[in-house]
Simulated assay, not measured.
Amino acid sequence: MSIYLGLMSGTSVDAVDAVLARFEPDFELLASHSKPIKPALKQRILALAGASMYGVDDFGLLDRELGELFAETATELISLSGIPASRITAIGSHGQTVRHRPGQGFTLQIGDPSRIAEQTGLTTIADFRRRDVAAGGQGAPLVPAFHRWLFHAPDEDRVIVNIGGMANLTCLAADTNTRVTGFDTGPGNALLDEWIYREQGLTFDANGDWASAGQVIPALLESMLTTPFFHQSAPKSTGREQFNWHWVEHHVDKLSQTASAADIQATLTELTAHTIAEAVKWLPLSSPTLFVCGGGVHNGFLLTRIADRLPGSRITSTAELKLDPDWVEAAAFAWLAWRTDRRQSGNLPEVTGAGGERILGAIYPA
C-alpha cells in the first residue's frame, strides 16, 4: 500500500495542514495534523504577498523558513500517526502562494521543497501550478481534478464548494457527458478574517456571529459587485492580489455615510454568499447538492446566507462523503503527488484553460 503525505497552506495563512492518505485500491485518510503559523510569520508572508517590491533576501529567508515549517509539520504528522516514514512514498507540497498572476504568465509558491526533502528524508513533489500556467492555464484551481476522482456520483448532481481565503467550486454533474467545471468565485474568508482582526484582534468570526449582528449595506455590496472579476467567464482564478484590504477600503470610501464595523462584516459575508450562489446558478445543473469544505464550513451564518440564496439546493459538508472538510485540500495535494509519481496528469484543461493535460510538479528525490 503506497502512502502519500499532503501539505497545504492556503490564502488564509493560518496553518499548515498535513494528511497521510492512500489512493489504491480505494481512498483512505490515514492521519491528519495542523500546525498553526505564528502571527509574526503570517504577517511577513502577507507583507510579501501584498508588496509590489520586496527584498530578495527577505524572499529567500521566507522560502527557507516555510520549507522548514512544512518539514516540521510533516515530521510531526508522521510521529503522531505511528506510521513509519519508510512506508511513505512521497510528500506532495502545495507551498504558500505569495503571488498569483496567470494573466501575466506566472504564479509563485514558496516553502523550499529541497529543504522538505532534506529534513524529512522523503521524496518531495512540489511546484504543481507553474506547469499548468506554462501550458496556457490559470494554474488554479487544481483541486477539481481530485474532486472529480473522489466525489463524482452517477445518481446526483454535486457542487463541491471550497471556502478558504478565496472560494472556488467544482461542478460534478451526474451525467458524465457534462464536462467538469471549476473556478474561483471570489473572496471566501480572507476579508472576513482581516476585518475582525483589525477591529477586535480575533483571527476569525466564530460561526459568523459578529456578521449576523450587523446589517448588509446595499450600496457597499453593489459597489463591490461591479468588480470585473465577478463578471468574467471561466476559466478564472484570483487571490489577494485582487481582493485585499485596499480593495475593500476603495469601496468603503465611496459610501456617503459612515458604516459600522459590524455592518461591514455583514456585507463582506454577504459578498461571499452572493458570489458563490450566483456561480452555482450559472452552472448547467438544476438544484444540485452543495458539499462544502474549507474553513468556511464552520461559519454557520455564511452557510445560512448561501442556503437562502439557493432555496432548491441542499447544503452539507464533505464529511457526508467520508472526508472531513478541513482536510480536503491537503488530501488533494497528496493525490497530486500520487498522480505525478505515476506519471499521470493532474490538471483538468477544461477547468484551468491549459492547452492540454499535464503531469504537474517537480520531484525532489529523497
Rank of each mutant, 00 (worst) to 15 (best):
L29H: 06
P235S: 07
S79Q: 13
V19Y: 11
A273S: 05
L5N: 02
A277I: 04
L66I: 05
G95S: 02
L169I: 00
R64M: 13
G95R: 01
Q344K: 03
I83H: 07
S2M: 12
V13D: 05
A332F: 00
E249K: 09
Q200D: 15
A219P: 03
G137S: 07
H274L: 14
P113F: 03
H94V: 03
R309Q: 12
P102G: 05
K236H: 01
Q96G: 05
A337N: 05
R44V: 01
A234E: 09
Q257D: 14
V280G: 04
N207L: 10
G201T: 07
Y364S: 03
D132R: 03
A332N: 01
L191P: 10
T227N: 14
E28H: 04
L268R: 00
L30G: 01
A117K: 06
D157C: 03
G136T: 04
G208Q: 06
T203Y: 10
L271R: 01
H231P: 09
D14Q: 03
T238Q: 06
L360Q: 03
A213R: 15
R129F: 01
S345M: 10
W335S: 05
R309P: 10
F183W: 08
W149R: 11
L46E: 07
T226N: 14
S233H: 14
L30M: 05
S256K: 14
D57M: 13
I264E: 02
A74Y: 01
E270P: 09
S81L: 03
A261F: 10
I160C: 02
G208A: 09
N189E: 07
V252C: 09
P235G: 06
F243W: 01
L80D: 15
E65F: 11
F27N: 10
F333S: 12
A126L: 07
E118C: 13
G111Y: 02
D209K: 14
A211I: 07
V19I: 13
L172D: 08
F106W: 04
I315G: 07
I116P: 12
A234L: 12
A331M: 11
T272R: 06
I163A: 04
D324S: 11
P349Q: 07
A174P: 14
R305C: 13
R158C: 05
H251Q: 06
V280L: 02
R131Q: 14
T340E: 10
P144N: 02
L66D: 06
G208E: 11
T73A: 12
V248A: 06
R305I: 10
L225A: 10
F146Q: 03
P39C: 00
Q257R: 13
A74E: 09
D175F: 14
D63S: 10
D209T: 12
W327G: 02
V133F: 01
R339W: 06
G10D: 03
E320F: 13
P102C: 06
L283G: 05
L122Q: 00
A234S: 11
L150C: 10
D341K: 08
T316M: 07
D184K: 02
Q104F: 12
I88H: 08
L268P: 01
A145Q: 12
V252D: 07
L77T: 02
E199Y: 13
P228D: 05
E72Y: 04
G10S: 08
E320Y: 13
T304E: 15
I125R: 08
G121D: 04
E270L: 09
